[in-house]
């Protein structure tokens, strides 16, 4: 575990370095002169040059990169061109909301997907399995925003149980935060459930055909013990990877859902940054999303170690 963790962390840092290079390179290739964009089409050459000097854009690219990375290390992500506010502050506001949504969605998904996947595997090719497969198929093939619209229509418009959208900070109204969270989290969770369930099902099926499951049965263990104790603990290991991936997807990748529910998260912020050529903000968003992705993977790695003693003790001197 020791060697394994050190290797994982080292790998993560390398990846992060790579991400900064790519982010910086790509955002600098984007068409459009920033100074021109800020000052508008009527700007004079002098004012443009002055602004470029002020933003540091006249320096060579590698110097700009190093400045930027050094800034990042100190938590300084630069200033947003569009909002004229520190990027770190802008992202900080949305970060909590996006994490909240992603966590809630993932929790809902895991809560439903695990039991469904297990039942589907145990009752392979029987009615529960067919039902679960169909459910999974529908969940995967219908786009996520459509679920959002359906949920709004049914639970907000018709039944009036929840607000149609928006966000209330918990400092103002914790209950309000929750009621606003339910629909977007459920819509996203619903789509994620399908993936996690399919993974759980196939992983369980594989484990259930293992020799040690046969031995557990031969020892006289009941079906309950065989499935929940012997099989699930093994089957969950590959599922963790999928869950970690789904979490980071839910965190930054579902702009369209944030739009549908007017949920001001990282996704929408990224979109705004792209549309307004707000390069510092865009860079900040990408780095934060990448960081969250890596952290959720690291969590997955730690969880592997928890569930799989071969990893926990392997390479430990």
């Amino acid at each position: 575990m020791y060697n394994y963790l050190v290797r994982r962390l080292g790998f993560m840092l390398l990846t992060l370095l790579f991400v900064t290079v790519i982010t910086f390179a790509v955002t600098n290739i984007l068409p459009g002169d920033v100074a021109l964009l800020i000052l508008g089409p009527n700007a004079t050459d002098q004012s443009i040059q002055a602004l470029q000097a002020q933003l540091g854009l006249d320096k060579p690219l590698y110097v700009q990169y190093i400045d930027w990375v050094l800034g990042l290390l100190q938590g300084d992500m630069g200033t947003s061109l569009r909002f004229d506010e520190p990027v770190a502050q802008l992202i900080g506001e949305k970060l909590g909301r996006s994490l909240l949504l992603a966590t809630a969605a993932t929790a809902i998904a895991v809560f439903f997907a695990l039991p469904l996947g297990v039942v589907a595997a145990v009752k392979q090719n029987e009615l529960p399995d067919l039902f679960a497969s169909m459910f999974g198929f529908i969940g995967i093939s219908i786009p996520i925003f459509l679920w959002g619209l359906v949920f709004i229509l049914v639970f907000a418009v018709w039944l009036g149980l929840f607000p149609t959208g928006g966000y209330v900070p918990p400092s103002e109204d914790p209950i309000g935060t929750l009621t606003h969270l339910v629909l977007p989290a459920s819509a996203m969770g619903f789509a994620l459930t399908a993936y996690i369930m399919r993974m759980t099902r196939s992983s369980m099926l594989e484990v259930l055909s293992e020799e040690y499951i046969k031995l557990a049965r031969a020892k006289g263990m009941t079906q309950r013990v065989v499935v929940l104790k012997h099989a699930l603990q093994n089957a969950i290991i590959p599922v963790i990877t999928v869950v970690a991936f789904q979490f980071s997807y839910a965190f930054g990748g579902v702009v369209v859902l944030e739009e549908v529910f007017f949920w001001p998260g990282i996704g929408r912020l990224t979109l705004t940054a792209i549309q307004s050529r707000d390069i510092p903000l865009l860079q900040g968003c990408i780095i934060v999303v990448a960081l969250i992705y890596m952290l959720s993977n690291l969590t997955a790695d730690l969880l592997y170690g928890y569930f799989d003693p071969r990893i926990r003790y392997g390479g430990d001197d």
Partner: peptide
């Protein structure tokens, strides 16, 4: 099973639950 009649399986490498 396992109480009055016990089964000792063939493959020691795969017959024990790794977790």
């Amino acid at each position: 099973r396992g109480n009055k009649i016990a089964l000792v399986p063939q493959d020691p490498m795969s017959s024990l639950n790794p977790v």
